[in-house]
Amino acid sequence: MRKAFVIVSSLLLVSFALQFVFAAVVGFTKPAGDGAYALHSVNGMAVIPVLALLTALSAALAKAPGRLIGLAVLPIGLVFLQALIAMLANAFTDAAGARTPLGLTIAGLHAVNGIVAVHVVVGVLRAARQLNRPAPAVARVPVREGEPA
């Protein structure tokens, strides 16, 4: 199960990396219609949450230490926070439907939270890899002189 923890954590990190690519697609698409958001939305609202849940579940099933399980659960909360930040940013628009300066500032927090989430997932993946490493062999020390080691 520890290998599954590493694999799922890796997939979560890849999905987060793709999320930044998909955000750039939205940013560079002119004009940015609703279709520009499709990949970013599907990945952020479906793929990442499922992988975050699987990461936390695999950490528990791998019998990871409690702190690591807690760290593996943290991306679930950060994903939830991402959705809240996005909704809040969209709530601050002017009469023409453009985001206000406050809405743009809140949208910037969406990016910052994404960066935090990536750092958490990197920590989870590093710890999962460490947990998956085989224990070092312990050399047998002779108890009596002349006893084979």
Rank of each mutant, 00 (worst) to 15 (best):
F22I: 07
A23K: 07
A24G: 12
A24C: 05
A24R: 10
V25A: 09
V25C: 05
V26E: 13
V26C: 13
V26Y: 12
F28S: 13
K30T: 11
K30I: 10
P31K: 13
P31L: 12
P31D: 13
A32P: 02
A32I: 00
A32G: 06
A32S: 14
G33Y: 01
G33N: 06
G33E: 03
D34T: 12
D34A: 15
G35W: 11
G35V: 08
Y37H: 14
Y37I: 08
Y37E: 03
Y37G: 06
A38N: 10
A38K: 12
A38M: 13
A38F: 11
H40K: 07
H40F: 02
H40T: 07
H40V: 06
S41R: 13
V42W: 06
N43R: 02
G44W: 04
G44T: 08
M45Q: 14
M45I: 12
A46D: 05
V47Q: 00
I48N: 12
I48C: 05
I48F: 03
V50K: 02
V50I: 15
L51H: 03
A52G: 11
L53Y: 07
L53C: 09
L54N: 06
L54C: 10
T55F: 01
L57P: 00
L57T: 09
S58N: 01
S58F: 04
S58Y: 00
A59C: 01
A59P: 00
A60T: 10
A60H: 12
L61G: 01
L61H: 05
L61V: 11
A62T: 10
K63T: 08
K63F: 02
K63R: 15
A64W: 04
A64K: 08
A64G: 02
A64P: 00
P65M: 05
G66T: 14
G66R: 15
G66K: 15
R67L: 14
R67N: 12
